[in-house]
Simulated scan of single mutants.
Amino acid sequence: MSDVSTAAPAVAHALSPVDLFLQADSIVKAVMVLLVIASAFGWAVILDKEIRLKILNARAKKLIASLQGEELPLGALAPEFSTVPTSDPLVQIYSAASQEFLRSRDLLDTEGQRDAAQERVHRAASLASAAALGHLQARLGSLATIGAVSPFVGLFGTVWGIMNSFQGIAASNNTSLAVVAPGIAEALFATALGLVAAIPAVIFYNRIGTDIANYGKKLASFIGVFDIELSRHLSKKGERNGLRVA
């Protein structure tokens, strides 16, 4: 009776995650290490994107709210924007549009020139927005890769481990559960690690992609605000030019 009670903890200890790794075949160990590294990298990307998007969304909400009921300066940053880091996408868009407006301010005499200037400013703002969103999306594709590949890498480790288990059974000519269980457990542990790496990667890839798309809508709204202010400014300039001609 005492032998049975002491054998159970030994088997349980042999099936712990650390022991499963230590007892595994070298190929299965390599698969496990690769999956752990992939999971750690995936979580690093997830935390970086989540924290950055949270900061950017909170800042965008304040900046856009500060423009309500106020005339947006065209040739220089509004006071609220000048205190924000230059790496912020809204500041980059504002700066790009303002600089293009300043370069075009001597080409606003005719209606055609004014229309062309407004189009250039809009394109400069759109390019800055696309570059900012591209920066936010950097390394996001790695989550999709981890989510798609990790289960198959884990499955490869499982197949390899089970093959080794069957080879061990054939060599020992012993099919008892005590002999088979450790090898199969080691093999299945690789699949479990693959799922641990893949499931969060897939979930947060979709979530972060949606958050970036929603943030892109905020950037598009700000470009629209700048376009409206620029159109109003150019219309006033056109009216003044018309009065002088008359």
Rank of each mutant, 00 (worst) to 15 (best):
A76M: 10
A197H: 04
V245M: 13
I55G: 08
K49I: 07
L219S: 08
L219N: 10
H122V: 09
Q118K: 14
A128F: 00
N164D: 06
L35S: 01
G238W: 11
Y205C: 05
L63M: 13
T83F: 10
L108N: 07
L133H: 02
H122L: 10
L47D: 03
L133D: 04
E239W: 15
L90N: 03
F21P: 08
A125E: 03
P200L: 00
I208A: 03
A30S: 13
V196I: 13
D106W: 09
G168N: 13
S66D: 12
E71S: 07
R52H: 13
I37D: 00
K54Q: 11
E70H: 05
R59E: 15
Q118A: 15
K62N: 15
S129P: 05
H13P: 11
D48H: 09
V153H: 05
K236M: 15
S82T: 13
D3K: 06
L219M: 14
G112F: 12
A148H: 08
K237S: 14
R103H: 08
F222C: 05
H13D: 15
V4S: 00
S165E: 10
W43R: 01
S87E: 14
E50P: 04
E229G: 13
L177P: 02
R232Q: 15
D211F: 06
A144N: 06
L143G: 05
V180P: 00
E239N: 15
Q167F: 05
E119K: 11
I212S: 01
A131L: 11
A181G: 03
G183A: 05
G209T: 06
S87L: 12
V121P: 02
L155T: 06
